[in-house]
């Protein structure tokens, strides 16, 4: 565990807590893509099946359980508890265009052709693009609440910090996982446009609003 990974994990944790707090306090899921959140629930479920097969540490296990649990709570909030506030008209990204190619790629490019390993690979690839329905929704409505922007910034930062973690691990531990690194780069690149808007607008007290 190095500092980049720890801060990355904390950033990921913070993103999830910000999102849950936003929904709970405002009693609303307005501006949140239910499709992205379903994809994240699929990501965590398929990645953390190793909870049943291997134990790494208390930290590792509790984070995995937290991520899986909160992803289902989030989906429940959007599609059940706060459903009247869910903006489905603007959440129109076609997720099959992500799931099908990502599933195919996981079958073709993986470390080992076994069920758990293919599901792990699938989750890594899917995570890299899972935010697209959310970014699509922001661009479609042309705006994002500040709290939603904070959520997206924390969520995007997490994988960017993992990139630093992988550079560190490559030099000091000889660890290198090409699948995770390539997917992590893709994931971080997708956030770049948003990072720019966040730094130039949200940090100066304005909310993100795009020209029509």
């Amino acid at each position: 565990m190095n500092i980049f990974r720890l801060v990355g994990d904390m950033s990921h944790l913070l993103a999830i807590i910000i999102l849950l707090m936003k929904m709970w306090k405002s009693r609303s899921v307005a501006g949140i893509s239910g499709k992205s959140q379903i994809l994240f629930a699929i990501v965590f479920t398929t990645r953390y099946l190793d909870l049943f097969t291997s134990f790494v540490s208390i930290y590792n296990t509790s984070m995995k359980v937290f991520f899986i649990g909160t992803s289902y709570v989030t989906v429940y909030f959007i599609y059940q508890h706060f459903k009247p506030t869910y903006d489905s008209n603007h959440d129109t990204f076609r997720v099959e265009f992500l799931i099908v190619p990502v599933g195919g790629l996981a079958f073709l490019v993986n470390h080992e052709f076994s069920l758990l390993e293919i599901l792990w690979t699938f989750s890594i690839y899917l995570e890299s693009v899972a935010i697209l329905p959310q970014l699509f929704m922001v661009s479609k409505t042309g705006e994002a609440e500040s709290i939603t922007s904070h959520y997206l910034f924390a969520l995007g930062s997490y994988r960017a910090l993992y990139l630093l973690n992988w550079i560190y691990r490559y030099y000091f531990e000889g660890f290198f996982d090409l699948i995770a690194v390539v997917a992590g780069c893709v994931q971080t690149i997708l956030y770049c446009d948003f990072f720019y808007l966040y730094i130039t607008k949200v940090l100066k007290g304005k909310k993100i609003s795009l020209p029509a």
């Binding site: 990974r5 097969t53 291997s54 996982d177």
Partner: peptide
């Protein structure tokens, strides 16, 4: 080299 135990990351 790689095996599933390497997935100690989240």
């Amino acid at each position: 080299d790689h095996d599933h135990d390497d997935h100690d990351e989240l």
